[in-house]
């Protein structure tokens, strides 16, 4: 009997060991690229014979800061992202409300039409965007790049907000009006607090999309509207791996902040929830 018990235990332990190994490999798979980028960005004279760089330096960051014009580019990136988020949210609030709470004939079909820009790879219509923007002199303007981003951000925002609005409990609104609240008060005291998390997650996701966006940016940017991803891409071409690594580290910081927010505020599943119904 004891032998049997030991045997069962050993199988359980073997499985546990397997699981731990799997998880460790997985973490290594995801994090190792970041770790090595980080080390690259602070390492000097590191030619890959050693596991760790022999000397540490912040020179590459200085280079990135000065030659790579990181401050100006960060400003561009944030302005563009802010504009894209604002436009997407402004578009998404009325349209999301209509989809979520009003009687829209052929809702399913219209919704998939709206989501089409997320199903078709951006590169497939990026050329068209570029040609139109050239003609309208929108290329190399913050507004123009942000507008291009809105093409992919807005559908997402509409989807997230329409499901948020749909989730509003009719009875709570009725209860508010029964309690004597007028439309304005109902809006500020009841609806707004209830939809705020939804709007917040929509903002987070559109921000991330715009911040990370490269395809449409590459076809609409100019000297005045380089964004961080574009700059990093150009740096890859320039071939200074250390400086590029430093830029990549700078580029990733806001993303980590967003990740933290997501983990705190929003269920991670919502991040892909945006694609449901596709």
């Amino acid at each position: 009997m004891n032998l049997l018990r030991q045997y069962v235990q050993s199988i359980l332990n073997a499985r546990k060991l397997l699981i731990i190994t799997f998880l460790l490999c997985f973490a290594l798979f995801i994090y190792a690229p970041f770790t090595i980028t980080l080390l690259r960005s602070v390492g000097k004279d590191w030619f890959g014979k050693a596991w760790l760089p022999p000397t540490l330096t912040l020179d590459w960051y200085k280079w990135a800061w000065e030659i790579g014009q990181v401050p100006e580019i960060t400003k561009n990136t944030l302005i563009i992202a802010a504009l894209a988020v604002t436009m997407s949210t402004l578009i998404a609030i009325p349209t999301g409300w209509a989809f979520g709470r009003r009687n829209v004939p052929g809702k399913e079909v219209l919704m998939s039409v709206i989501l089409l820009p997320r199903m078709i790879p951006p590169i497939a219509y990026a050329l068209g965007v570029a040609r139109i923007f050239y003609r309208l002199h929108l290329v190399d303007t913050h507004f123009g790049v942000a507008l291009a981003h809105t093409a992919i951000c807005a559908p997402y925002a509409i989807l997230v907000l329409s499901s948020t609005f749909e989730g509003l409990d009719e009875r709570v609104l009725e209860a508010a009006s029964v309690c004597g609240a007028n439309a304005v008060r109902t809006f500020f005291h009841v609806i707004l607090p209830m939809v705020l998390p939804g709007i917040l997650s929509s903002v987070i996701f559109t921000f991330t999309t715009s911040y990370n966006e490269l395809t449409l940016t590459l076809l609409t940017y100019g000297v005045h509207t380089k964004t961080l991803p574009v700059r990093t891409y150009l740096a890859v071409g320039e071939g200074y791996l250390e400086v590029t690594s430093a830029m990549a580290v700078i580029l990733v910081i806001p993303s980590l902040f967003v990740l933290f927010m997501i983990q705190r505020q929003v269920a991670p599943e919502k991040l892909v929830g945006g694609f449901k119904g596709v």
Partner: peptide, 24 residues
């Protein structure tokens, strides 16, 4: 921690990941 780890590749800019993978 691992749930958060799953989110990383789709939250960080693709370029950063690509660069890191190239180096690694």
């Amino acid at each position: 921690f691992f749930r958060l780890t799953v989110l990383i590749p789709i939250t960080v800019p693709g370029l950063v990941g690509a660069l890191g993978l190239l180096v690694f």
